[in-house]
Design a protein around this nucleic acid. Sequence first.
DNA 1: CTATAACTATGACATTTATCATGTTAGAGT
DNA 2: ACTCTAACATGATAAATGTCATAGTTATAG
Lengths: 228, 228
Amino acid sequence: MNKCDQCIVRQLSSLKALNKEEVVKLANSKTTHKIKKGEAIFEEGEVTNGVFCVKDGIGKLSKLSANGKDQIVKLVKSGELLGQRSMISNEPANLSAKAIADMEVCFIPKSEIIHFFNNNNQFSMNLMQSVCEDLKDSENDKIALVQKTVKQRLAETLLHLHDAFGENADKTLKVQLTREELAGMIGTATESCIRLLSDFNKLELIELTGKKIVLKNVKALKKLAEQL
Amino acid sequence: MNKCDQCIVRQLSSLKALNKEEVVKLANSKTTHKIKKGEAIFEEGEVTNGVFCVKDGIGKLSKLSANGKDQIVKLVKSGELLGQRSMISNEPANLSAKAIADMEVCFIPKSEIIHFFNNNNQFSMNLMQSVCEDLKDSENDKIALVQKTVKQRLAETLLHLHDAFGENADKTLKVQLTREELAGMIGTATESCIRLLSDFNKLELIELTGKKIVLKNVKALKKLAEQL
DNA sequence: CTATAACTATGACATTTATCATGTTAGAGT
DNA sequence: ACTCTAACATGATAAATGTCATAGTTATAG
């Protein structure tokens, strides 16, 4: 069993507030899991009874619609927690969590989290703040969906991916999404997304080499994302 | 000063977890305000330094876009808290809160809320759950915005208004929104909203008498809202 | 009780975006 | 290396929705 006190991830999540004793308790109750790209951590409707802490890799939270499209609500990376919302609300998961790149996650049982929540004010405040952050993001996304065009949302999303996940040595975006997934993030049809990427490519806002994407003109993308 | 222990509202919000002593403390620090229809409780960007508890009336949380449209994120009624998110995140308000019907609200300073949060596990859990509930709603709204047509969203919103706010003796919806506000809720142009309301009227799904709306065929509206 | 503004309504049209069809390319597995 | 499948790409078209124009209607202040 990995010792949690050496896990860098702990520094990033709400768990950073835990004291030595609590970390030991955590290490004894958590279980570690490897999730391959494409596999699910949990599915919509499942009762998880705990939270997952992302140690490595990238995951997506999404919901399948009646017409078969997968709307991506959020991407998660190292240091983030998954499943807090439904755990706190005592509800089955509202969204599915799947790996976009191979992941390593730790499962922490509900009883532990509740215990920390009730006994460590800093932890409960951290957890609260992370949910509040999600709420703010979600509200802003909602507004963007209504007030911005698909083109603007694509520009915005590319910038966000760059910001949140960074780039490789060759300047390509680190997150590797299929066009379909990217379309699912911005809420549009796959074809529309592909078309706009081509447009951006022609306008030299981005560069497409295979499925790798390089942001060539961040300033222009920003302008595009902002402007009315 | 009103005594909080007699306030029915307290039974509805996270504040229901407070004990006798805490309620006294609350009563001594809160201030009560009357907000006229159309007036703001707080505006986007303001630092509120506390939360507002809605005692009576109906308010909207919204964000003004560059093109002058007001996107409504949520309606709030008696028993709900306003401004928790930005208070917890230590940020200026992300949204404006305005009265849609004359309101009475109590302002509770941040220091009180934090004190309760740190000393009353049931309160902090309640508060957490209410934010989680908001998050879930927001995520579902987001998905609906992408996956449903304007027509479906209008049907859904009418049902939600009926559900959440109820009807008057004459069966008309209790919340009285302008067409512009309703459009702002479903994320569409005012004209489109008006047009669809007319359609619904012709199809006898609803009845329009002036700006009052009666849901005539709830079943059909539900079907419309759900179906692909 | 009128004047004036705000709200509601509807038509005509433009634009955006989805859908369908079809072809190409790239990557995984044998 | 060769297939086979999934992913990418693009054109043609249709559908949904936004925008602009204009007019009727209601509410409200003076």
